[in-house]
């Protein structure tokens, strides 16, 4: 089955991104396809490279990056949500005159159209959030 995933909450504050990660990992290990994970609202904070949680806690952003590398999963951060919340790749940082890129490896910033496309292309779109 082709799954599309929508993550609407930030890491640590809410279990949504943990549940999404475990769901995606399990689905891929079972041989399903995950067309894309789209991060919206505070969900975009899952993709910050500036997160340094305590070492005895789960490393949420790193987990996503490793999953993207292992299974070639497309991790997309919504550009409009990122702009409100201070998430920038090189292009966005240059466009807005900001100094840094804080998008972690395996993530990319793109538009909301990618969410709609995911809904069209997936057999099931599964939302994680409140």
């Amino acid at each position: 089955m082709k799954f599309g995933i929508l993550v609407n909450e930030g890491p640590y504050q809410h279990q949504a991104s943990d549940s999404a990660y475990l769901f995606v990992k399990a689905a891929l290990e079972k041989g399903h396809e995950v067309t894309r994970v789209f991060f919206y609202h505070d969900g975009v904070y899952n993709g910050t490279s500036y997160s340094v949680p305590p070492l005895d806690d789960r490393q949420i952003t790193k987990q996503w990056s490793e999953l993207a590398k292992e299974y070639d999963v497309d991790l997309v951060l919504c550009v409009a949500a990122c702009q409100r919340r201070g998430m920038m790749d090189d292009g966005e940082a240059e466009r807005h005159g900001k100094g840094a890129n804080n998008v972690a490896e395996g993530f990319r910033i793109s538009g909301l159209g990618q969410l709609i496309e995911t809904g069209i292309q997936s057999d099931r779109l599964v939302t994680f959030g409140d």
Binding site: A81, L112, L115, I116, I120
Partner: peptide
């Protein structure tokens, strides 16, 4: 919360996809 505003933003973008 911001959910309502950002939901409306998705709806407006989605309009271009003729769904």
């Amino acid at each position: 919360t911001v959910y309502a505003l950002e939901s409306l933003e998705v709806v407006l973008i989605a309009a271009a996809f003729e769904q």
